[in-house]
Design a binder for these strands. Structure first.
Lengths: 326, 326
DNA sequence: ATAAGAACTGAAAAATTTTCACACACGGTC
DNA sequence: GACCGTGTGTGAAAATTTTTCAGTTCTTAT
C-alpha cells in the first residue's frame, strides 16, 4: 500500500498539515520539525505530489558537469550530447567547473535538480559526490575519464591503444629522441596515454627521451615545450597528451626556428577541429565523440545497470589521423 | 478569487475528475476533451497544482539556445553564463542548433520546459519564436545579436565602433589596399562591423579594395582568403568579420608564402583565446563577454522590463587588442 | 513593560487526485 | 451474426493533500 501523508504525520508526531508544509518550500514551519518530517517520509518511502511532479520533470533531464570548456574538445562533446538529447526529447542542464574549483560545493545544487543522470567530463569526481549520487539513485557516467576505484560507470576512448599508436607512428618514421609532454598527472587520460606510449617504446627497446608537464592547457604546454627544446640534447619528436598542448608545442618549436616535422615531430590526442587546420596539420588520435556520447546514453538508458551497481567501463577505439606534423 | 478546477469543469461541461486528468500527462482522457478543458482553464486563468510546482522549478531555469559551438567564442560565453548562473543558484538548460537547422522545430521543446528566460546566441530567431515567447511570458535576450525589427531585448558589443577601430588601425599602419572578409550577410554582427569599417575608410577617402564571404567559419574563410589572395591586385590588409575567419585567412596567406604583417595584415573580431597564441598574435577587438553576460542577466532580472514590451538594446564597448598581425 | 507583529501550529474546510464500477468500442472466435 | 475478452474513457465517490482560519508563542521596537 502506498504510504500517505497521514502515516508520515503519525510517525513524526505532527499534524497532517505540517507534512504538507514540509514539502512546500517557503511554507512556515520550524526547521527542526521539517527535518524530522522529511526523515520520517524518507524512511516510509512517502513522496509528496509536488515531489512526484518534480521528479517527473527531472526524469527527462540529464546534467552535464563540464570541466575545461576552453579545451575545444569539450565543446564538441557538449554539442554532440545536446543534439542527441534533443533528438530523444530530453533536456540538458549544464554546470561548469574551474579546474581547481571546489567540486563538493556544487553537489547540492546539482542534486537539487534531481536529474535522471549525470555525465561528468570534468577532471575530478570526488567520492563524496559519487556517494551522494548513489544515495539519490542518480546514475553517473564519466566521459573521457575512468576512475576504477570509485565504482562508477565510465566511457572513454582507448587511451592506452592510442598512446601505442602514436608511439608506433613516431618509431616507424625513424625518430630517435622521442619525448613526452604530459597533462595532469593523476588523470586517467594522462596515465593511460603515457602508459601505452611508454610500453611500445619499451617494446622497441627505447625509453622516453625527455618528459615535461603541460597541464592540458596551451599556456603551460608552451612553457614546457620551450623548456624541453631549450635544454641540452633536445628531442626530435614529442607526443603531447592532448591536442591543445601539441599546438602549443608546435608554436614554441616554430618560435625557436624549428621546422616541423623535419627538426621536430609533434603528435597530439583528441583531434579537435584545429588539429586539421593548415597552420598545424597535426598527427593525432581522433576520439570517437559521437559514439562515446551514444554509449554514455546507452549506459544511462540501460535499465539493467543500477545506480547502486559497481561501475561499468566501456572503451572505444580511437583512429590515428596521420597528418603532416609527425 | 482564485479560479478552481470545479469552475473549469463547469465551463468545459465535464466532471471535476476530467479536469484533474487533463493536467496529468498519460491519464486516460479523450484528446479533444483534454483540449477543451485546457482551453477553458486557460481562459479562466486556472493553474493546476502540478503546473504550479512545475512553474516554480522552471522559474530558476534559464535556457541558452546556442548556435555554433565550433566557434570558440561561444564556449566562452557558455562558460561565463554557467558560472554566473551557478553563483545565483539558477540552472542552465542548453540547446544547440546547427546553423541551417529548423529553429521552429525545437520551439515546442524549449517552451515545454517553461524557463523563466531564454538567451539566444544562435544566428536566427524567427518571428514565430519571438511571438511564442511573448505569448508564454518568457523573456528573451539575444546575445551578440541584434534584431531591431523583432521587438526583442538584445545585448551586443559595439560592433560598429569595433569595425571603425579596426579600420583606423589599418589606415594608421599605412595599408593601402584594404579588403574585407564577411560572415553571414544578414546578421547584425556582420552588417554592423562591415558598416563601421566601411565608414571609416570612406572618411579617409578610401573604399574597400576587395570583398569576399567566409560564412563565419574556418573552412569557407580559408577558401575565400585563397581566392582573394590569388586574384590580380591582391590586398595588403584584410579585416575578417570574426577571429576564426582571420585565423583561416592567416593560414591561407602563409600557404601562399606571404609574411604577416609585412606582406599582408590580418585583423579579426572577438578575441578568442587562440587569437593570442604565438602562431597567430592576431590584432582583434575583444568582446567584453563577462559584462555582456552580466548585462543579459540584468535585463532578465529587471522587473520593469516585461516580456511583452518592445525590446531594449544594450551595447557595450569592445577593446582593440593590438597584436602583431596588423 | 508593553504593544505590534511575525512565525508557527492543528483543526477544519476546500481543493485535487485517485479509485471504482460501469459503459462502450473494437477485434477475434465459434 | 452472436459472444466474449480487452482496453479506453467516464463520472461519482472516496481518499488524499493543500489551504484557510483562528489561536498561540515568541521576537522586536518603542
Amino acid at each position: 500500500m502506498k504510504p500517505t501523508a497521514k502515516q508520515v504525520a503519525h510517525a513524526a508526531g505532527v499534524s497532517l498539515a505540517a507534512v504538507s508544509r514540509a514539502f512546500t518550500p517557503g511554507a512556515p514551519l520550524d526547521a527542526a520539525k521539517r527535518k524530522r518530517i522529511l526523515a520520517a517520509a524518507e524512511s516510509l518511502g512517502y513522496i509528496s505530489p509536488a515531489r512526484r511532479t518534480a521528479n517527473a520533470i527531472a526524469a527527462g533531464t540529464i546534467t552535464l558537469v563540464a570541466g575545461d570548456l576552453l579545451n575545444p574538445f569539450y565543446p564538441t562533446v557538449l554539442d554532440t550530447l545536446a543534439r542527441q538529447l534533443q533528438a530523444s526529447d530530453r533536456q540538458l542542464l549544464v554546470y561548469t567547473m574551474a579546474a581547481n574549483a571546489d567540486v563538493d560545493a556544487i553537489i547540492p545544487q546539482i542534486l537539487a535538480a534531481r536529474p535522471s543522470a549525470i555525465i561528468v567530463t570534468s577532471t575530478f569526481l570526488t567520492s563524496n559526490m559519487a556517494r551522494a549520487c548513489r544515495q539519490h539513485q542518480i546514475k553517473v557516467v564519466l566521459l573521457n575519464r575512468i576512475q576504477r576505484d570509485a565504482r562508477i560507470n565510465a566511457v572513454a576512448c582507448d587511451n592506452y591503444q592510442g598512446g601505442r599508436d602514436i608511439g608506433r607512428r613516431l618509431l616507424e618514421r625513424g625518430y630517435r629522441k622521442i619525448g613526452f609532454i604530459g597533462g595532469v598527472a593523476n588523470t586517467s587520460t594522462h596515465a593511460e596515454r603515457a602508459r601505452g606510449f611508454q610500453d611500445i617504446l619499451a617494446e622497441a627497446g627505447r625509453s622516453i627521451h625527455v618528459r615535461a608537464a603541460g597541464d592540458f592547457n596551451y599556456h603551460d604546454a608552451y612553457a614546457a615545450g620551450m623548456a624541453v627544446l631549450s635544454g641540452g640534447d633536445p628531442p626530435d619528436a614529442l607526443f603531447c597528451c592532448n591536442d591543445i598542448m601539441a599546438l602549443a608545442v608546435m608554436d614554441a618549436a616554430r618560435e625557436r626556428g624549428l621546422r616541423i616535422p623535419d627538426d621536430l615531430a609533434v603528435a597530439g590526442f583528441d583531434d579537435i577541429p584545429m588539429a586539421g587546420w593548415n597552420a598545424y596539420r597535426l598527427t593525432t588520435i581522433r576520439q570517437p565523440v559521437e559514439r562515446m556520447v551514444q554509449e554514455a546514453l546507452n549506459l544511462i538508458d540501460d535499465p539493467t545497470i543500477k545506480p547502486s551497481d559497481d561501475g561499468v567501463t566501456r572503451t572505444l577505439p580511437g583512429t590515428l589521423m596521420a597528418r603532416k606534423s609527425a
